[in-house]
Computed example of a mutant assay.
Amino acid sequence: MSTLNEEIEKHIKKLVYPLKNPEELLEVLKVKLTKKEFKLLRSWADEVPQSEIQTELNLDEKRYGELSTKLIKKLNQEKIKQAMCI
């Protein structure tokens, strides 16, 4: 099972500084992401199968793809990266 930090690091293209500790990181993510984006990221970190995520978040295949893309783009925004890093 990967941690939330490891999952975020997988999706960020260039990370200059290390991520904050898990508790602080959760607080930043709760503010910066929508509830669905946050749940999706947590599900990825917990290695939940895509079909279960889609059912839990009430998403079809297209909407799942859109949400995933939006989340990854958001994680790569400079302002959000600065908030997540030490």
Results as ranks from 00 to 15, higher is better:
M1W: 07
S2F: 10
T3F: 10
L4I: 15
L4E: 09
E7A: 08
I8C: 05
E9H: 11
E9I: 06
L15W: 07
Y17M: 07
Y17Q: 08
Y17C: 02
L19V: 06
N21F: 05
N21T: 10
P22V: 04
P22S: 05
L25I: 11
L25S: 06
L26A: 06
V28C: 06
K32N: 03
L33Y: 07
T34V: 10
T34R: 08
K35S: 14
K35Y: 13
K36Q: 12
E37D: 10
K39E: 15
L41H: 11
L41F: 15
S43V: 01
E47F: 08
V48T: 15
V48M: 14
V48H: 03
E52Q: 15
I53A: 03
E56Q: 12
E56D: 10
L59P: 09
D60S: 00
E61V: 14
E61T: 13
E61I: 13
E61P: 05
R63A: 09
Y64N: 04
G65L: 01
E66P: 04
L67K: 01
S68N: 08
T69F: 07
L71K: 02
K73A: 04
K74T: 15
K74D: 03
K74H: 15
L75F: 13
N76D: 01
E78F: 13
E78P: 04
K79E: 09
Q82E: 10
A83F: 11
A83C: 01
M84Y: 08
C85S: 15
C85W: 02
C85Y: 04
